[in-house]
Design a binder for these strands. Structure first.
Length: 827
RNA sequence: GCCGGGGUGGCGGAAUUGGUAGACGCAAGGGACUUAAAAUCCCUCGGAGAGUCAUCUCUGUGCGGGUUCGAUUCCCGCCCCCGGCACCA
C-alpha cells in the first residue's frame, strides 16, 4: 500500500524536531568561515503577506545552501516594531500599541515557523522593547556629544493625517509615504542627524558596492546629488551687501546678464525695501513663497519674477547687471540665488525672453557660427567667445582656471554641493524611541545620563489622535529633574523616526543579549558585514542610505571597523496579481495561510521561487502553484515506487566500461545538475533555474528508471541519484527532503548534511552532438566522441549525405570547426 | 527633460564566453486508464508552407542598419514599456 504525500504531517513533524533539537542556533566560531544572510525585518502589521514569503524564502534557500556548503551561517530575524500603525490601531480600537504589536509578533512568528524558515530564534530582536531602544538612545547621546545630533529650526514636512513631521525622503510626490495624505509645510524646531558630513563618503563608498544593482546605486547617487562648481560673490551696487551664487558653469559667467534670487532669499525683501512698488512687491514675494511651498512637488510652474531695481557687479566683466527675484529659484539648494546666463541655460533663456532681459552668447559649440539672437539656449560646451582674457579657450577646461582666478581675486572659490539634507528624526508620536534629552532653564539641553537609560515609554498614556505628541500630555513623563543642576526640567517629548531603529538592527543580531553596549564589537567583527542583504527595492534610498550612514558613524565611535554594512544587496521584485501589487484595496490578496493549508509550506516555497528570478516581479497564478504541488508529488511517488532501494547503500561504481550507457548517462546528468544548481544558487541567485534543473534530473530518473532497475549497478546509480536530488532540493523543500532523507536510512538530519560535490570528470559527456551548418544555417548533426580531432570532424561533416546534397553545384570555400560543438561550411 | 533597467511562444520564463532559440513549468489540444469524473500516465505544442507523414523548406528574439563563417548575445540609429529623479543653478 502506497503512502500519500501527507505534507501537513511531514511538515509538523520536522518543524518540531528542528525546534526541539535547536538546529538553527549558531555561535561565533573563529575556526570556521562565516556567512551572514539577512532579509529586511518585517513591520508586525498583523499577518505575513506573499511579499514576506518571497523575501524570506529566498534568504532561507541561500542560508540553508551555505550551511550545507560548510559555512557558519547567521540567519536572524526580528521586528521593526515601533511605528504609526500600532498607534493608529490604538486610537481606533482602544488597544494599547504594545499589546497590539506583541500580539501581531506572536502571530507572525508562528506563520514564519510554519513556513519552515531556519531562523536562529534565540537572536530575535524587537525594536519596541526597552532592551533594544535603550541602545538607540545610547547611540543618539554619542552622536549628540559629537554634534552629529543637533537641533535646528526650519521648515519641515508635516503630515496632517499622521500629525507628525516627515523627513524629505518620506514625502513622495507631495504625499506622506505612509498614509498618502498631502504633506504641509510647517516651521518647527527639530532634531537632526548630520548625515551630510558623510555625503562624500556615502557616494565614494559606491565603488565598494559593485555587486549592487546599477539602478539602486543610481538612485542613491541622485539622492546624494553631488555637483562640483564654484561659488561667486556679486557686490550689490551702492551697498555693502553681496549676493553669493553657486554655479556649475562658471565658464559661462561672461554671459551672466542678471542675477535671480529666490523669493525666500534673505536679501529679497531687503532689496525692494526702498522701491516705489515696495508693498505690492512684498505681497508678491509672500504669495510666491506660499505657492512654492505648496506646489513643490507638482512640477514646474510658469516662471514669474520682479525686478528689484537694484544692480550687482559681475566681477568678471565689471558690468552692472540687474537683480531679479523669481519663483524658479529654490531657497534650499545652493545659496538661493543664481547668476542667470540666458544664452546657455534653458530656464534663464525662458525667463529672459519673457521679461526682455539681455542675452549674450559666450560659447560656440565646435564648428558652429555664433548667433547674435539665438532661438534657444545652448548648454553644450565649446569655445569661449566674448569672455575677456579667457576668449578662445575650451570652455570645459577653462572652468578650473576661471574658478582659480576668482579665488585669487577674492570673489569666489571652487566648491562642491550636495543635494542630500540632514536627516530630521523628530516625530511627534508616542510609539517610538524617546529622544533621551532634558531641557533645563539654567543648563540648556542636557543629555540623559547613560546610566539612566533607557528612557522608557510610559505605559499609561492616552491615545486619541489629537495633535501634538501624546508624551507631551503625560505629566509624569514630562516633569523631571535636570541631571546637571537637579532643578526642575522638562523631558523631550518627541520620539525618533523608526528608520533610526532599523539603521543598526543587523549589528544587534550579532550579540542580541549584550547589556553593556549596543552590540559586542568582537561578535560584530566576526559576523559583519552582512554577506547578502535581501529586501524590497522600495528601501533603496531611505533605509539603505541611513544604514550605510550609521555603519560609518558606529565605525567612528570605535564599535566596528566595517565601512559598509551590506556589500551585496539583492533587491527582490514585488509579488503581483492581475497586473498590480497585492493589496487589500485592490482585493487581490492571496493569503499564505490558505496556501499552506491547501498545498503545504514546501509547495508554496517552491512555487514562489520557481516562477521568476528573485529580482523580477512575481506574478501570482493559481494554476502555477498546482504545478509545483505536482512536482513534489512526483518526487514523493517516485520514492514510493523505488522504496526497495532505501536500504541499499554504497554506489559500488565501476566507472567506464563496466557501467552501461544508461548508468553513465544518468551520472553525467546528475553531475551537470549539481554544477548548474550550485552556480544558480551561489553565484547568480537564480533560484528558478536551479529548481528547473532539479526537475530535469527527476524527469531523467523517471525516464530511465525501468532500464536502470534491471541491473545491480543501475539500481545503485538510481539510489545515488535519489540521494543527490534530495540533498539539492532540501533548501527549497526542506520538510519533504528531511522525510525522504530519513527514509533513505540516514540518521543525521539533512539540515546538517553536506552539499553534493561536483565532479567535472563525471559531468563531461563522452559523446557530443556536433551541429553542421551550411552558411550559418543548421542542416544536420551527428554524434562524435568528445575531443575528436578537427580534421576528422570536418571530413565526417562533409561526407554526410544531406550536406553533400546541399553542396551540389557549390564550392566549399571555408570550413569552420568549433571543437565538440559545430561545423560551419561556407559555400 | 535627465538617470537607470528592459522588450524572446497563448502565459511565467530559459539560453554560462558570439555557436542547435524557446530549457523547466503553466495553459491548450489529442490519447490511455475509468461505467463516468477527478487524479495519474503518454503524445503534440513559435508562425507559414510542402509532404512519400519514423520528414523537409522558409521564416522568427521590438524596428532599421552594421561587424562576423555565424548575432537573442557585440556596435550605430530609432520605437515602445517599466522604475527613479525632476525648475538642483
Amino acid at each position: 500500500m502506497r503512502e500519500e504525500y501527507n505534507f501537513e504531517e511531514i511538515e509538523n513533524k520536522w518543524q518540531s524536531i528542528w525546534k526541539s533539537e535547536n538546529v538553527f542556533s549558531v555561535k561565533e566560531d573563529p575556526g570556521r568561515k562565516k556567512y551572514y544572510c539577512l532579509e529586511m525585518y518585517p513591520y508586525p502589521s498583523g499577518k505575513i503577506h506573499m511579499g514576506h514569503v518571497r523575501n524570506y524564502a529566498i534568504g532561507d534557500v541561500i542560508s540553508r545552501f551555505k550551511t550545507m556548503s560548510g559555512f557558519n551561517v547567521l540567519h536572524p530575524i526580528g521586528w521593526d516594531a515601533l511605528g504609526l500603525p500600532a498607534e493608529n490601531a490604538a486610537i481606533k480600537h482602544g488597544v494599547h500599541p504594545k499589546e497590539w504589536t506583541l500580539d501581531n509578533i506572536a502571530y507572525m512568528k508562528k506563520q514564519l515557523q510554519r513556513m519552515g524558515f531556519n531562523y536562529d530564534w534565540s537572536r530575535e530582536v524587537s525594536t519596541c522593547l526597552p532592551e533594544y531602544y535603550r541602545w538607540c538612545q545610547w547611540i543618539f547621546l554619542k552622536l549628540f556629544e559629537k554634534e552629529q545630533a543637533f537641533r535646528k529650526k526650519s521648515w519641515v514636512n508635516w503630515c496632517p493625517s499622521c500629525s507628525t513631521v516627515l523627513a524629505n525622503e518620506q514625502v513622495i510626490s507631495g504625499l506622506c509615504w505612509r498614509c498618502d495624505a498631502e504633506a504641509d509645510q510647517k516651521q518647527m524646531e527639530q532634531w537632526y542627524l548630520k548625515i551630510t558630513d558623510y555625503a562624500e563618503e556615502l557616494l565614494s563608498g559606491h565603488s565598494r558596492l559593485s555587486s549592487w544593482p546599477e539602478h539602486v546605486l543610481a538612485m542613491q547617487r541622485n539622492w546624494i546629488g553631488k555637483s562640483t562648481g564654484a561659488h561667486v560673490t556679486f557686490p550689490v551696487v551702492g551697498s555693502s551687501q553681496t549676493v553669493e551664487v553657486f554655479t556649475t558653469r562658471i565658464d559661462t559667467i561672461f554671459g551672466a546678464t542678471f542675477l535671480v534670487l529666490s523669493p525666500e532669499h534673505p536679501l529679497s525683501a531687503d532689496l525692494i525695501g526702498d522701491s516705489a512698488d515696495r508693498d505690492s512687491h512684498m505681497a508678491w514675494i509672500k504669495r510666491k513663497i506660499e505657492e512654492q511651498r505648496l506646489s513643490r512637488d507638482e512640477g514646474e510652474a510658469e516662471k514669474e519674477g520682479i525686478d528689484t531695481g537694484k544692480k550687482a557687479v559681475n566681477p568678471f566683466t565689471g558690468e552692472d547687471i540687474p537683480i531679479w527675484i523669481a519663483n524658479y529659484i529654490l531657497m534650499d539648494y545652493g545659496t538661493g540665488a543664481v547668476m542667470a546666463v540666458p544664452a546657455h541655460d534653458e530656464r534663464d533663456f525662458e525667463f529672459a525672453g519673457k521679461y526682455g532681459l539681455s542675452i549674450r552668447v559666450v560659447i560656440t559649440p565646435d564648428g558652429m557660427v555664433p548667433k547674435k539672437e539665438p532661438e534657444e539656449a545652448t548648454e553644450a560646451y565649446g569655445r569661449l567667445i566674448q569672455s575677456g582674457r579667457f576668449t578662445g579657450k575650451s570652455s570645459r577646461s577653462a572652468m578650473e582656471e576661471m574658478a582659480l582666478f576668482a579665488e585669487e581675486q577674492g570673489f569666489g572659490s571652487k566648491s562642491t554641493l550636495f543635494r542630500l539634507r540632514d536627516w530630521g528624526i523628530s516625530r511627534q508620536r508616542y510609539w517610538g524611541t524617546p529622544i533621551p534629552v532634558i531641557y533645563c532653564k539654567d543648563c540648556g539641553i542636557v543629555g540623559v545620563p547613560y546610566e539612566e537609560l533607557p528612557v522608557q515609554l510610559p505605559s499609561d498614556v492616552e491615545l486619541k489622535g489629537e495633535e501634538g505628541s501624546p508624551l507631551a500630555r503625560n505629566e509624569s513623563f514630562v516633569h523631571t529633574a535636570c541631571p546637571k543642576c537637579g532643578g526642575p526640567a522638562r523631558r523631550e517629548t518627541d520620539t525618533m523616526d523608526t528608520f533610526v531603529d532599523s539603521s543598526w538592527y543587523f549589528f544587534r543580531y550579532c550579540s542580541p543579549g549584550e547589556t553593556g553596549l549596543p552590540f559586542q564589537p568582537e561578535a560584530a567583527k566576526y559576523w559583519m558585514p552582512v554577506d547578502l542583504y535581501i529586501g524590497g527595492v522600495e528601501h533603496a534610498i531611505l533605509h539603505l542610505i541611513y544604514s550605510r550612514y550609521f555603519c560609518k558613524v558606529l565605525r567612528d565611535l570605535g564599535l566596528t571597523d566595517r565601512d559598509e554594512p551590506f556589500p551585496h544587496y539583492l533587491p527582490q521584485g514585488m509579488v503581483i496579481k492581475d497586473g498590480s501589487a497585492m493589496s487589500k484595496s485592490k482585493g487581490n490578496v492571496v493569503d499564505p495561510d490558505e496556501m499552506i493549508r491547501k498545498y503545504g509550506a514546501d509547495t508554496l516555497r517552491i512555487f514562489i521561487l520557481f516562477a521568476s528570478p528573485p529580482e523580477k516581479e512575481f506574478a501570482w497564478n493559481e494554476k502555477g502553484i498546482e504545478g509545483s504541488f505536482r512536482f513534489l508529488n512526483r518526487i514523493w511517488s517516485f520514492f514510493q515506487e523505488n522504496a526497495d532501494l532505501f536500504n541499499e547503500y554504497e554506489f559500488n561504481a565501476a566507472e567506464g566500461s563496466e557501467a552501461d550507457e544508461t548508468v553513465r548517462g544518468l551520472r553525467t546528468k546528475m553531475h551537470q545538475t549539481i554544477r548548474n544548481v550550485t552556480v544558480d544558487i551561489d553565484k547568480r541567485f537564480h533560484l528558478n533555474t536551479a529548481i528547473s534543473s532539479i526537475m530535469e534530473l527527476l524527469n531523467r530518473m523517471k525516464a530511465d528508471r525501468d532500464c536502470l532497475r534491471t541491473s545491480e549497478m543501475g539500481r545503485s546509480a538510481l539510489r545515488e541519484a535519489m540521494e543527490i536530488l534530495i540533498r539539492m532540493l532540501s533548501p527549497f523543500a526542506p520538510h519533504l527532503c528531511e522525510e525522504l532523507w530519513q527514509k533513505l536510512g540516514h540518521q543525521q538530519i539533512l539540515v546538517h548534511g553536506e552539499w553534493p560535490a561536483f565532479n567535472p570528470e563525471l559531468a563531461r559527456e563522452e559523446t557530443v552532438t556536433v551541429v553542421v551548418q551550411v552558411n550559418g544555417k543548421l542542416r544536420d548533426k551527428f554524434e562524435v566522441e568528445r575531443g575528436t580531432a578537427e580534421e576528422e570532424v570536418k571530413s565526417r561533416a562533409l561526407k554526410l549525405e544531406r550536406i553533400q546534397q546541399i553542396l551540389v553545384g557549390r564550392t566549399v570555400r571555408k570550413v569552420i570547426c568549433i571543437q565538440d560543438k559545430l561545423v560551419n561550411i561556407v559555400a
